[in-house]
Write a protein that binds this DNA or RNA. Structure first.
Lengths: 133, 133
DNA sequence: TTAGAATTGTTATAATATAACAGTATGTAA
DNA sequence: TTACATACTGTTATATTATAACAATTCTAA
């Protein structure tokens, strides 16, 4: 029907959902996203989850596993989400992507004794942020 | 009615569920656990989740966040689950707890630029294990 | 021995995620 | 420009993961 919005390589639904996540200061959950995009014609969970899956796959967003929530990638170092690290405040729930070259290199070169070669890692740090202290 | 089984500091349900997880070579999901303990009189999800919460809290088990599954702690270094690291095979789903003093020290002493002091971390490495290669 | 804390049992329901199927848009190569 | 493959969309239904709320029992420590 109408042209897809391919300017950024993203499809219409992907772009809508990425924009929402990108401008959110907080990680967003799938059903919060669904609620917020219903006015744009995205009506059902599979539409949201499909866009989320794709955005994760291409590294535009990351899933915070401990919270089942999604944040936009703020970091050029984590090419296609191979090496992610986050700082999570247990009080206000704020999540910050950690961009630390030394940390990233250290972990990327870490290999398991049992002969396993790692392709990817996800690290989540928990604490109380400056504001909440 | 009957005495609780406190020999190990665990209540009856906690002990039943810990035993099941501890002898499993694979991470177990909550509803898999539920199915497997119904013959022992644990009938409903809250009973399972309460035991899991407690076992996580006291460090007897860990939750693998990316899989919503639970493994017994095999590691004396992660006192009360403050510092956990896992190796996860993306092919066979095998999960191994990583016990590496250097890694643990490195991460435990890592602090965020933005003034956040971390109390806890969880790290999940992904790859293809030796067997699956 | 009794009060508080922890644990248990139970029903119902909330929150998170996917299966399956039919249709539409897009890119590309003949 | 047709036709094919691939990716994306829309939709209904359902599977999976997790918690709320309440009543009762058991444990522990004073």
């Amino acid at each position: 029907m109408t042209r897809m919005h391919k300017e950024n390589n993203l499809s219409k639904n992907q772009q809508i959902i990425f924009d929402l996540i990108d401008k959110s200061p907080e990680p967003l959950k799938a059903y919060t996203i669904l609620f917020n995009v219903q006015k744009k014609g995205i009506n059902a969970p599979p539409q949201v989850y499909r866009a989320l899956d794709k955005l994760v796959e291409i590294g535009k967003i990351h899933k915070i596993e401990s919270k089942n929530a999604f944040v936009a990638c703020k970091n050029s170092d984590c090419e296609i989400s191979k090496a992610t690290a986050f700082s999570i405040c247990e009080s206000c729930e704020m999540v910050d992507e950690i961009s630390d070259t030394k940390l990233s290199k250290y972990l990327s070169s870490f290999n398991h004794k049992k002969g396993m070669k790692f392709k990817r890692f996800n690290l989540e740090f928990f604490g109380i942020c400056k504001k909440c202290k």
